[in-house]
Simulated scan of single mutants.
Amino acid sequence: MALTDIWFVLIAVLWTGYFVLEGFDFGVGMLLRVLSKDDTDRRVLINTIGPVWDGNEVWLLVAGGATFAAFPLWYASLFSGFYLALLVILVALIIRGVAFEFRGKIDSVRWRRNWDRAIMVGSTVPALLWGVAFGNIVHGVPLDAQHHFTGTFFILLNPYALLGGLATLTVFMLHGCVFLALKTTDTVRDHAIALAKPLGSAAILCAGGFLAWTAADHGGWAWLFAIAAAVALVLGVSYAIAGREGVAFVCTAVAIVATTVTLFAALYPNVLPSTTDIANSLTTTNASSTPYTLRIMTWVAVAFTPIVLVYQGWTYWVFRKRVTRASIPSGQR
């Protein structure tokens, strides 16, 4: 396997890790005021992701950095064509991060309510737009012979990409709902389990349609991974309704993994297809860095990736217990 192919796979792995981990973060944020009856419940929800949400975003930074270093033309075309959409995602993530930090700074109901809304919006916007972005990456965008994006922002709002956005939005919300059932107790857990059925129905409808469309367009391995994703999603909903949230969370995570693999399998060997002329498409070959750059990156990845994985795994192990209302100190906001 060529180094270009290896780095295509590694970037797929990074995006998969980001969607699985940040996916339940987004889900918790979107459900912040849906599954809580008072401020203590909302503090419980925030505390389930408090120790890990910022670490989960590291996967996004590494995926972006790896794309820039391994496939600079892909990175350049993405950021020129998707500039507005990516800027909106960035602003939403910044607002979300600030909201987590500022929410408890002032003992005011109105203050906390406004920051809660910021968390919900800052979680919903990226969850939707990441699906739209990857839908366009797989579907293709207009590129000229110099690989310059020649379309407009509204070209990105095509039916396939919008369905991809609804798929990620609903699946991440379901993933977060199951995570809350796994990490909480009492009424919050009960409400999360009850919400899993309607959320699961929406996720199966949107994600199933998106996966079927993707597999029908690209065939091959995409069908295998799409079917695996759909089966895992259905099982996740079934186990969640049955109150087996641990197995359900594994299933929703597998569904996200299989969905991301479906997209990258459908994309390969392209990294950004051109809808203007297939000859203008960016591929793993014509968009890559030099072999020397890829060799250096490979050694760096081999040396440091295990350290990062061990550290993040240790973090999840330390904070593995359920969060209860009793664990919220009196007066904490």
Rank of each mutant, 00 (worst) to 15 (best):
R189P: 04
V300G: 06
A265N: 08
A232D: 11
L205F: 11
V13C: 07
L267F: 07
R189G: 03
L267M: 08
P198D: 00
A69M: 13
F319E: 02
G140I: 01
P159M: 03
R333F: 10
A266L: 05
A326Q: 11
T170M: 02
S327T: 11
K183P: 02
L21E: 03
R113I: 14
V132A: 04
V254Y: 07
T259N: 06
H191N: 14
I155F: 11
V52F: 09
P159N: 05
V254F: 12
A326C: 04
F249Y: 09
D107A: 15
W213Q: 12
A207E: 12
L294G: 02
P126Q: 06
V141Q: 01
A196R: 00
F225G: 08
R43T: 13
A279V: 09
V254L: 14
L90T: 09
W74L: 13
M1F: 14
V178Y: 04
D144P: 02
V52M: 09
L21S: 04
N114I: 15
L233N: 07
A194N: 08
L93C: 04
I89P: 01
L182H: 10
D5A: 14
G209F: 04
R322Q: 12
R333E: 12
G65W: 08
V52D: 05
G200L: 02
D116F: 11
T214W: 04
T170P: 00
G243K: 06
A216S: 14
P306D: 06
S108T: 13
W59H: 08
S238K: 15
G17V: 00
F26E: 00
W130A: 06
H147L: 01
T262M: 04
H147M: 01
V52Y: 06
L282E: 01
I6P: 09
D107T: 15
F149S: 00
V302H: 06
P159Y: 03
G176P: 01
S108E: 13
V261P: 03
L180S: 05
I49W: 02
A99R: 09
F100Y: 13
M120N: 11
S201F: 14
F19K: 01
T4V: 12
N56R: 07
P329C: 07
A12S: 09
V171Y: 00
G65S: 12
L45N: 03
I155W: 12
A118T: 11
I204W: 05
Y18K: 02
G122N: 10
L61T: 12
A2V: 13
F68S: 09
W15G: 02
G131E: 05
A203D: 01
L86D: 00
K197M: 13
A127C: 08
A167K: 00
Y292I: 14
Q146Y: 09
S289A: 13
P306T: 03
C251F: 10
L309F: 08
F79W: 11
C206M: 11
V58T: 15
S288A: 15
V254T: 10
W111T: 11
Y311E: 10
G200T: 03
T67A: 15
D25A: 00
